[in-house]
């Protein structure tokens, strides 16, 4: 009985994943078509390009209680819009900085490149991120 209770209380993080329409969203679809299983903690938001992601979207996500945020885009050189992923990568450094200032562990934010052919990589990324965020515990802004 005691054990059961403990298990029920296991922290289940909420993780947001921003996926670009052309590569990583298609990679996420391929994970589905290939039936690669992964934890249910991720909610995908589709955007046309990772370059669309205004840093405030990510900071807002943490403010509203996201335990982790994944930004995924096309591999360097493969961006459907030529260099949107590079623009995102530039913002990434700034975002990590801003997160530390706000007292959120920068490790809660990840930037990964996933192609339309990498369903297995997408599934592995979700498994790995969920595990890591579980180990980190809830977003400190939530408990503060």
């Amino acid at each position: 009985m005691e054990e059961l209770k403990l298990e029920q209380k296991e922290f289940e993080p909420t993780i947001l994943a921003f996926c670009c329409n052309w590569c990583s969203y298609a990679g996420a679809d391929l994970a589905g078509t290939s039936r690669f299983e992964y934890p249910t903690n991720v909610r995908v938001i589709r955007v046309m390009c990772s370059g669309r992601l205004d840093p405030t979207f990510i900071l807002s996500a943490f403010r509203w209680g996201a335990d982790g945020v994944l930004i995924t885009g096309c591999h360097p050189g493969d961006c459907h819009y030529v260099q949107g992923n590079y623009m995102m990568e530039r913002r990434f450094g700034f975002l990590k900085e801003a997160m530390s200032q706000l007292g959120i562990e920068p490790e809660r934010l990840r930037l990964e490149w996933i192609s339309a052919g990498e369903g297995e990589k997408f599934a592995a990324l979700i498994r790995d991120t969920t595990q890591k965020i579980k180990e980190m515990g809830p977003n400190p802004l939530k408990t503060a």
């Binding site: 938001i45 955007v47 390009c49 370059g51 840093p55 405030t56 979207f57 819009y81």
Partner: peptide, 29 residues
């Protein structure tokens, strides 16, 4: 329609049709 300009604009003066800040943020929230 990539939306890089909307993300970079320092005045938030650029909006993307069908992928506006409100539309994306409403999903996040």
């Amino acid at each position: 329609g990539c939306g890089a300009c909307a993300a970079e604009c320092p005045r938030r003066a650029i909006s993307m049709q069908h992928y506006s800040d409100e539309q994306i943020l409403s999903q996040v929230k």
